[in-house]
Computed example of a mutant assay.
Amino acid sequence: MTHLPGGVGLSELRVYDWPAPDGVCGGSPHMHLVCSEAYVVVEGSGSVQTLTWSGYAETPLEPGAVVSFSPGTIHRLVNGDGRLRIVVVMQNSGLPEAGDAVFTFPPHVLASGELYGRAAAGGDEEAVLRRRDLALAGFFALRDDPSGLAAFHEAAGRIVSGKLDEFEKRWSAGARAMAEATGEQLAALRRGELSHLREAAVGGTVPHDRLGMCGHLRAHQS
Results as ranks from 00 to 15, higher is better:
residue 29 P to H: 08
residue 30 H to D: 14
residue 31 M to Y: 06
residue 32 H to M: 10
residue 34 V to A: 11
residue 35 C to P: 08
residue 36 S to P: 09
residue 36 S to D: 09
residue 36 S to V: 08
residue 37 E to Q: 15
residue 37 E to M: 06
residue 39 Y to C: 03
residue 41 V to K: 05
residue 42 V to E: 12
residue 43 E to L: 05
residue 44 G to C: 10
residue 45 S to H: 01
residue 45 S to I: 02
residue 45 S to E: 09
residue 48 V to R: 00
residue 52 T to K: 00
residue 52 T to I: 11
residue 53 W to F: 05
residue 55 G to Y: 12
residue 55 G to K: 11
residue 56 Y to H: 15
residue 56 Y to A: 15
residue 57 A to S: 15
residue 57 A to P: 12
residue 57 A to I: 03
residue 59 T to M: 03
residue 60 P to K: 06
residue 61 L to N: 13
residue 61 L to P: 07
residue 62 E to K: 12
residue 64 G to V: 00
residue 64 G to Y: 07
residue 65 A to V: 08
residue 66 V to L: 05
residue 66 V to R: 11
residue 68 S to V: 04
residue 68 S to H: 08
residue 68 S to N: 02
residue 69 F to Q: 06
residue 69 F to C: 08
residue 70 S to N: 04
residue 71 P to Y: 03
residue 71 P to M: 10
residue 71 P to H: 03
residue 72 G to N: 09
residue 72 G to M: 02
residue 72 G to R: 05
residue 74 I to M: 05
residue 74 I to S: 00
residue 75 H to E: 01
residue 76 R to P: 07
residue 77 L to I: 01
residue 79 N to T: 11
residue 79 N to M: 12
residue 81 D to I: 08
residue 81 D to S: 10
residue 83 R to M: 04
residue 84 L to Y: 08
residue 84 L to M: 02
residue 86 I to H: 07
residue 86 I to D: 00
residue 87 V to C: 09
residue 87 V to P: 02
residue 88 V to D: 10
residue 88 V to A: 12
residue 89 V to F: 01
residue 90 M to I: 07
residue 90 M to V: 13
residue 90 M to F: 10
residue 91 Q to V: 11
residue 92 N to P: 07
residue 92 N to F: 07
residue 93 S to C: 02
residue 93 S to G: 15
residue 94 G to A: 04
residue 95 L to E: 07
residue 95 L to Q: 05
residue 96 P to Q: 07
residue 97 E to S: 05
residue 99 G to L: 15
residue 100 D to L: 05
residue 102 V to P: 09
residue 104 T to K: 14
residue 104 T to Q: 12
residue 105 F to A: 03
residue 105 F to R: 06
residue 106 P to I: 14
residue 106 P to C: 14
residue 107 P to F: 09
residue 108 H to C: 02
residue 108 H to T: 01
residue 108 H to V: 09
residue 109 V to T: 15
residue 109 V to A: 12
residue 110 L to C: 02
residue 111 A to D: 06
residue 111 A to W: 08
residue 112 S to C: 11
residue 113 G to T: 06
residue 114 E to A: 04
residue 116 Y to W: 02
residue 117 G to Y: 10
residue 117 G to R: 02
residue 118 R to A: 15
residue 118 R to N: 11
residue 120 A to G: 09
residue 120 A to P: 14
residue 121 A to R: 15
